[in-house]
């Protein structure tokens, strides 16, 4: 009997942990679009639509959306943001570090080997976000900002680990972004939030040493320096 209860509990835990996320659009405002799985194009989103883990949601300049997750949680996404529904599954710190390290490993060139037997590398990064051709929202304008806004929304909903992964991924994807050190600063702040001092210092340092052009708003670098002096 005890074993049966244990089995049921374990099964339920497993289901809870790995249960696929679904999200219902409960409110939309302005331009909101969704993309199903690996479909090529975006489609207009309206209230009541169910989104699955493989889907993505996009808001325009004046758009916003409210999602109700199958867990009952409410998630609000502001204007000019992009989010994969899968990014709403709360990551543990371990999963977060695995995801970050996976990306770091991806950036290491494979060893040149004469061995015929090769094990393929595992890839977590799934490519570049690019603008659509037929969508009403102009996606090719500062795409990193939409990613950033998605990450900010995650932070606002206390999904800090998810936000870190998204910010890290955005930094990797948009290495040429003129963000004036903002992405690294936000990454540092998120690590500081998690009390990961070492990683936070590393991110703040990266923010202060980012190539800031003359039109840059110095606020991010300044805040990063403040963060550094705080942590040191």
């Amino acid at each position: 009997m005890i074993y049966q209860i244990l089995t049921i509990c374990l099964t339920m835990t497993t289901i809870t942990i790995f249960a696929p996320i679904t999200a219902k659009l409960t409110h939309t405002s302005g331009e909101v679009m969704l993309r199903r799985g690996v479909d090529e194009g975006w489609q207009n989103a309206s209230s009541g639509v169910i989104l699955y883990e493989i889907d993505s949601i996009l808001t325009g300049e004046a758009g916003s959306v409210t999602l109700q997750l199958n867990s009952g949680a409410i998630f609000k996404l502001g204007a000019n943001a992009i989010l994969d529904i899968s990014e709403l599954r709360k990551l543990s710190e371990q999963e977060m570090f695995i995801a970050i390290m996976g990306k770091k490993i991806d950036n290491i060139s494979p060893r040149k080997s004469k061995t015929k037997l090769k094990i393929g590398r595992i890839h977590v990064v799934h490519g570049e976000y690019v603008s659509g051709k037929t969508d009403s929202i102009k996606l090719n304008q500062t795409p990193w900002k939409r990613e950033r806004n998605g990450a900010i929304a995650l932070l606002e909903h206390q999904l800090v680990t998810n936000a870190i992964v998204k910010l890290n991924s955005t930094i990797q994807k948009y290495q040429e972004a003129d963000d004036c050190g903002e992405l690294y600063f936000r990454l540092g702040a998120a690590f500081e939030n998690l009390k990961k001092t070492g990683q936070a210092i590393e991110a703040y340092q990266a923010s202060t040493s980012s190539d800031a052009h003359k039109d840059c708003n110095p606020v991010w670098v300044r805040q990063a320096r403040a963060g550094l002096s705080r942590l040191r």
Partner: peptide, 27 residues
């Protein structure tokens, strides 16, 4: 390259970025 991947798809879930032996990421 990742930048050129737009030419074949706008959905990043349709492809995979992998680094080749030359250290270059390709789609």
């Amino acid at each position: 390259s990742p930048e050129q991947s737009l030419q074949i798809s706008t959905n990043h879930k349709r492809f995979i970025m992998r680094q080749n032996l030359a250290g270059k990421q390709t789609t």
